[in-house]
Computed example of a mutant assay.
Amino acid sequence: MARSYDHLLFDLDGTISDPIDGIGRSINYALEHYGYATLPREAHSPWIGPPLFHSFRAYTGRDDETHLQELVAKYRERYADVGYAENTLYPGMAEALQALAYTGVPMAVCTSKRADFAQRILELFGIAQHFRFVDGGDIHIEKWEQMAKLRERGIVTERALMIGDREFDMIAAHRNGLSAAGVLWGYGSREELTAHEPAHLLAVTTELHALVPLCEGSRI
């Protein structure tokens, strides 16, 4: 018998929406401000998923905590103003979320992005009502640690499903005893995702509908 899920946890960037323009322009805003070379659009993809602090450290080669926090703060300055809105909802996502919401299974967002930014994006697309809560990250917080806190507090159980486009989502789920679904319309490759043996691998947003009968209490 197929496993049923009592909660669906969604990553945001690269899973629900495509954030590359807002993230990329805000990265360049911060880099330029502090005298670093900016990046072309095609070089922004690896920045989507990991915590920004780590990405700035890898790019600049600096370990100066204060400076790296300054870069993150400068990024957020532009992102809070306009970057969050330079975002595109993936085709078919609104319909898939509506179908999943109809099952009655609780849904939430678990993202490395700050929670207030994530909430504004959900409201921008008119889909915030589908999610019971938004769990956001911050500097030095890994996604698996976010999920561990949700487990410790009893907010989600081991029967929750994490849905995301990067290996960080798969790792976070498995380290906390959850199943994971990898999505291929975001920024993680098939090889990156399959290396972590997700329970589901979805190629297009319409395949989210296949999760409907697996949702506990589904009306379908």
Rank of each mutant, 00 (worst) to 15 (best):
D116C: 13
F117C: 09
F117R: 01
R120N: 07
L122S: 01
L122N: 00
E123W: 00
L124Y: 01
L124G: 04
L124R: 02
L124I: 04
G126H: 06
I127W: 03
I127N: 04
A128G: 09
A128N: 09
A128Y: 06
A128R: 13
H130V: 15
H130L: 14
H130P: 05
F131N: 05
R132T: 03
R132L: 02
R132P: 00
R132H: 05
R132Y: 00
R132S: 09
F133V: 06
V134M: 01
G136D: 00
D138H: 07
H140F: 14
H140Y: 13
I141R: 10
I141A: 04
I141H: 08
E142T: 08
W144R: 05
W144K: 09
W144L: 10
E145V: 09
E145S: 11
E145C: 01
Q146I: 12
M147F: 12
K149C: 11
L150P: 11
L150M: 06
E152G: 12
R153D: 03
G154C: 04
G154M: 02
I155P: 00
I155A: 01
V156E: 06
E158W: 07
E158C: 00
R159K: 11
R159D: 09
R159H: 12
A160F: 04
L161K: 05
I163F: 00
G164P: 08
G164F: 09
D165T: 09
D165H: 05
R166N: 06
R166T: 14
E167D: 09
F168Q: 05
D169Y: 13
A172M: 05
A172L: 09
A172K: 10
A172F: 12
A173P: 08
R175Q: 04
N176G: 04
N176P: 05
G177Q: 00
L178C: 01
S179A: 10
S179N: 08
S179K: 08
A180P: 07
A180W: 05
A180C: 02
A180K: 04
A181D: 04
G182I: 02
V183R: 00
V183T: 03
V183Q: 01
L184V: 06
L184Q: 03
L184W: 04
W185A: 02
W185N: 04
G186Y: 12
G186L: 12
Y187V: 02
R190N: 07
R190L: 13
E191L: 08
E191I: 08
E192I: 03
E192Y: 13
E192F: 10
E192W: 12
L193R: 11
T194I: 10
A195T: 14
A195D: 12
H196C: 05
H196M: 07
P198S: 01
P198K: 05
A199G: 14
H200F: 06
H200G: 06
H200L: 00
H200Y: 11
H200T: 07
L201N: 13
L202M: 14
L202W: 15
L202V: 14
A203C: 14
A203F: 15
V204D: 15
V204K: 13
V204L: 13
V204I: 15
T205G: 14
T206E: 15
L208C: 12
A210E: 14
L211S: 08
L214E: 13
L214C: 10
E216S: 14
E216D: 15
G217N: 11
G217R: 13
R219E: 09
